[in-house]
Simulated scan of single mutants.
Amino acid sequence: MTDQIHTGGCQCGAVRYRATGEIGFPHLCHCRMCQKAAGNYFMPLGGVKWEDFAFTRGEPAWFQSSETVRRGFCEKCGTPLFYDGSSDHISITLGSLDDPQNVKPQLQTNLARKVSWFGELDHLQHDAEMDMTPDQERAVAKSTRQHPDHDTDAWPPEEKP
């Protein structure tokens, strides 16, 4: 096992977790169940052994999506966080990591359900006029209720009088 520490959590900060060691089998799952659970075209997942995983704030709600699989999510903000296939590991949604750049997917699964035009996404035009300006980003940052991408002692922060 390596000394890597991965932290992450939901958008509102009610559920936080820590995984120690390498996140294995980082992949994009295109199955219809993952598409529905993510509300997206695919779900990025990677696994860590239960013994190397801990909740550090709150606990997820669970939805039993099939006989053998339950999916963990934040009950407060709805962020999909986990896939538990009743084995010795838990799969983490890679986008919920504080630093998702650190875990690059290495393969894809369930390609029969992959949307037919998925490979064309990189070729979509970019409308730079729709990008936030630095002033807009600062204004959003001042009023955001999104948990920062690092562990905090408490969340949400206390309101200032």
Rank of each mutant, 00 (worst) to 15 (best):
T2I: 05
D3T: 12
I5G: 05
G9Y: 08
G9W: 10
G9P: 02
C10S: 09
Q11F: 14
C12W: 10
G13I: 03
A14T: 11
A14C: 14
A14H: 14
V15S: 10
A19T: 08
T20W: 11
T20M: 10
T20F: 08
T20L: 12
G21S: 12
G21H: 07
F25R: 12
F25P: 00
H27S: 13
H30Q: 06
A38T: 06
G39T: 06
G39W: 01
G39H: 02
N40K: 01
Y41T: 04
Y41L: 10
M43P: 00
G46T: 04
G46M: 06
G47I: 01
V48I: 12
E51G: 01
E51N: 06
F53K: 01
T56I: 09
G58N: 02
G58R: 02
E59T: 06
P60M: 01
Q64N: 08
S65R: 04
S66T: 04
E67C: 00
E67T: 03
E67P: 00
T68P: 00
F73S: 04
C74G: 02
E75N: 12
C77I: 11
G78M: 07
G78C: 06
G78H: 02
P80M: 07
L81V: 05
Y83G: 05
D84N: 08
G85S: 13
G85N: 13
S87I: 10
S91P: 01
T93C: 15
S96P: 02
S96Q: 06
P100F: 03
V103H: 10
V103P: 09
P105I: 13
Q106T: 14
Q106E: 15
L107C: 14
Q108P: 00
T109W: 04
V115K: 14
E120V: 04
H123C: 03
H123D: 14
Q125L: 07
Q125T: 10
H126W: 08
H126Q: 14
D127I: 12
A128Y: 14
D135G: 13
Q136Y: 05
Q136P: 05
E137L: 15
R138E: 14
A139P: 05
A141H: 12
S143V: 14
S143D: 12
Q146G: 04
Q146R: 15
Q146N: 12
H147S: 10
H147V: 02
H147T: 03
P148K: 03
P148H: 04
D151F: 06
T152W: 03
W155T: 01
K160T: 15
P161A: 15
